[in-house]
Write a protein that binds this DNA or RNA. Sequence first.
DNA 1: TTCATGGTTTGATCGTAAGCGAAGTATTCC
DNA 2: GGAATACTTCGCTTACGATCAAACCATGAA
Lengths: 234, 234
Amino acid sequence: MNVASSDADISVSAVAAAIAEPARTRMLYCLLDGHARTATELAIVAEVGASTASVHLATLAQKHLLQVQAQGRHRYYRLTSPEVAAALEALSIIAASPRARFEPNTPNRLRAARTCYDHMAGALAVALHDRFIALCLLTAGPRGDGMYDLTDAGTVAFAKLGMDIAHARSSRRRFACACLDWSERRPHLGGAVGAMLLDAALKRRWVVRDMDSRALRLTPSGRRDLRTRFGIEG
Amino acid sequence: MNVASSDADISVSAVAAAIAEPARTRMLYCLLDGHARTATELAIVAEVGASTASVHLATLAQKHLLQVQAQGRHRYYRLTSPEVAAALEALSIIAASPRARFEPNTPNRLRAARTCYDHMAGALAVALHDRFIALCLLTAGPRGDGMYDLTDAGTVAFAKLGMDIAHARSSRRRFACACLDWSERRPHLGGAVGAMLLDAALKRRWVVRDMDSRALRLTPSGRRDLRTRFGIEG
DNA sequence: TTCATGGTTTGATCGTAAGCGAAGTATTCC
DNA sequence: GGAATACTTCGCTTACGATCAAACCATGAA
């Protein structure tokens, strides 16, 4: 065992331990949609008292899993980075895989459509992703590292939805990338474009947020619009 | 909080807790190279007594992170699936990121070349990956989900290294895929082809295993051969 | 058969950390 | 200013789990 790897080990232990506490896990999963929430909100979803929640949140912030932002008498907590969301999804995959063998098709609102950090996930998101590629709106980047780019047709189509593609390009964030969907085991669209797409979908009420969970619900008008616009049958 | 998501939460907690114990983390990291090891070997790397190691290993097996295989009076433990390796790498990324801000270029044997599950990782692996694509030996698959394919030229070139590409294609395992490298933050080559490439590299002594760690060392002849064969300057 | 080795089970000890309520600090609203 | 709200800190209790030594199985070798 060399120093470098045991060094890495202890800090991985610390991060895993921070995630492991059930109350903290509930908090993190609640924040997986990318929203910021107050300490009391998180105390409620974690099902612990305010004082307990406070020390949990301090722990998570100290381990750099959460960021705090004080605003008046509220303190808003959010996930520090997409990497944190990725680690949580990776843990979900291995947590879900043994039971998936026994109940392979759990009917689940989350399976159909949900948010992943700040973009869409689930069957709907995967269908959109595949359709965008089939329609040549989106192409895999040249380096084969899961980065995407919009074609000219894609730029036009997405601009029509009110998305500011030029702004997304200039942002420091990754423009568009593949994000592995844990329920579908296939990629959906992440990155700045993925986030803007979720915004647009909510603004046009293609989908509405389910209160108190990451689930999204496809509206009748959303279903109609997605069919005429992209030829998606739902 | 709906039932589905809190169900997921508790099992994620359990998996994270299984990883979190430092002795178990050391065991898992030791197994990250894809090898199977005996209980006593793992007790040594974990720096605990045999009895303690035994209960740790039972815990990890019960949570489906490890597989056991009895062979004579030895019991061999290995990671259950690449997904487990992926989760460990994802945790590494967030564990490393805060400190990376302060010491961005930690000189580290592991950074240069190491094994990831059963294929190569680190700067060398990323260089090979990029070179294969530049030389049109390897191409990104059509679906943009991080799957790769060999070109005809690639099939010939890899066959010359003694790799049985036809066998790799017929295996149930993913043929070739992008695997995110946590130190380089860029993809390297995984899947069956990645595993065979590591075999070939070891057989030709391009690299040799560092005892007692995942590090690989590039040999002088390996350096020479990689330059003449693929034009890689190291 | 007997002995040695690899591995697991048991029982007891010990430390850490999660939990709550009460008291303390800060900020907004009236 | 004073009351109410949001959040944290403190002190205390409790419980879970990591550890080891010793006893206990199983396999292979002599």
